[in-house]
Computed example of a mutant assay.
Amino acid sequence: MSSPTKVSEFPLDEEYKKKTMISVADIKKFRDWLDTQPHLPADSITDLDLILTYHCCDRSTGVAKEVLDLNLTLKTLFTNFFKERVVDDRILSTLNTVLLLPLEVRTHDGSAVLYARLIDYDYKNFTFSDAIRAVLMVVDLWQYEEGTWPGFVIVIDLDRMTLGHLTKLDIQTVQQFLYYLQEAMLVKLKGLHFLNAPSFMDRLMMLLRPFLKKALLDVLHIHQIGSKTVDPYVPMEGLPKDAGGEFKSFEQGQNDTKARFKANQDFFVQENKKRVVEARRPGKPKTISDIFGSVEGSFKKLDID
């Protein structure tokens, strides 16, 4: 990730040079289909958006169509995360509470790694839905800048998390985030790591487990306080200095993320246009109850090696 300045879209000609085996013809065909969907915002969907979708679906045209529709549908229905995404006092306050830091290090297979943790330890200042809102903004901006990744890994450092924080995790937000993460996020999710697991980790897992597919459970790793067991997955030296690595300090990372948001407000203005118009959807408009009524019929497979 570059310095916290205004970023530009990853060049398409460079994207087509990656080892994704995605061609211009593939995306042209995808675009032709998109133009036939009256409820989808075709004019706001970029070719890079289509490439990200096609890539995360292992170049399956049928799955890519379903996932793009679902991605845009959830961005419309999950208003806590996606409505009016702007760089305002709400989001900047969230970034004073949680550190969300794209790491420069990559995993052995080239997967991108997002590091997240608390930096304000007072649970009264923690709002879970706002934290997730910020996470998804960070990832969307990062993908816009870097294009496709071979995979995506999330590292959540639970250092200083308390039972007070756990009480702030509401079921609806947990369900919506984990559904979006596994079914509609335009990444190949390769791993989820919890560092510095607290004594009440079992309670946290009781909250998460009902919404985790087996494929994600298989790559979910819990690392005990002070252990270095994450190293075979994510090189320890790539973590922030305050977490035992050699990357930025927490304070530097926090300042850089806030500066990136402020410098790229236009990106989020444009991203807000990528929403579904349900009134134009062929057939019956979709609702949240429709979405969670069809969980058993999910189609996106996690890309687990």
Score class of each variant (00 low, 15 high):
233 Y>W: 11
253 G>L: 00
198 P>D: 07
188 K>Y: 02
234 V>M: 04
250 F>T: 12
246 E>Q: 15
224 Q>P: 04
198 P>C: 11
224 Q>V: 08
214 K>I: 07
224 Q>N: 15
243 A>L: 03
238 G>E: 03
197 A>W: 01
212 L>P: 02
192 L>H: 01
248 K>Y: 13
243 A>D: 01
233 Y>K: 04
250 F>G: 10
233 Y>N: 06
188 K>S: 08
191 G>N: 02
250 F>N: 14
252 Q>T: 14
202 D>R: 12
183 E>A: 02
217 L>F: 10
191 G>K: 02
252 Q>R: 14
204 L>D: 10
199 S>I: 13
256 D>W: 06
220 L>A: 13
184 A>E: 03
192 L>R: 01
254 Q>N: 10
217 L>C: 14
238 G>I: 09
223 H>S: 10
254 Q>S: 07
184 A>W: 05
244 G>Y: 04
203 R>Q: 15
233 Y>H: 13
249 S>N: 11
211 F>M: 10
234 V>Q: 01
239 L>C: 08
236 M>W: 13
236 M>N: 12
238 G>C: 06
236 M>I: 13
206 M>F: 10
240 P>C: 04
194 F>N: 00
201 M>L: 15
214 K>L: 07
194 F>R: 00
182 Q>D: 08
187 V>Y: 02
212 L>R: 10
240 P>S: 08
205 M>A: 04
219 V>M: 11
246 E>M: 15
225 I>M: 14
197 A>D: 01
220 L>I: 09
233 Y>G: 05
206 M>H: 13
253 G>R: 00
218 D>S: 14
217 L>K: 15
210 P>E: 06
249 S>F: 08
204 L>W: 08
238 G>H: 05
245 G>Y: 02
224 Q>T: 14
205 M>W: 12
227 S>I: 07
202 D>Y: 08
244 G>D: 02
196 N>A: 07
254 Q>Y: 02
196 N>E: 05
253 G>K: 00
242 D>V: 05
231 D>H: 14
198 P>F: 05
211 F>T: 05
217 L>W: 07
233 Y>F: 13
229 T>K: 15
246 E>I: 12
247 F>C: 07
223 H>I: 09
256 D>P: 03
192 L>M: 12
184 A>F: 10
240 P>Q: 05
227 S>T: 12
232 P>E: 08
222 I>T: 10
186 L>S: 07
208 L>P: 01
255 N>C: 12
196 N>V: 06
183 E>T: 03
196 N>G: 02
190 K>H: 09
195 L>Q: 00
238 G>N: 04
196 N>R: 10
221 H>V: 11
220 L>K: 06
215 A>T: 14
240 P>V: 04
254 Q>P: 00
210 P>Y: 05
230 V>S: 09
195 L>W: 01
215 A>L: 13
241 K>V: 06
205 M>N: 04
214 K>Q: 14
194 F>D: 00
251 E>N: 14
199 S>P: 10
238 G>S: 08
237 E>I: 09
221 H>P: 01
235 P>L: 09
253 G>H: 00
198 P>M: 07
215 A>Y: 07
188 K>V: 01
204 L>C: 11
228 K>V: 13
234 V>C: 03
253 G>F: 02
222 I>D: 03
205 M>I: 12
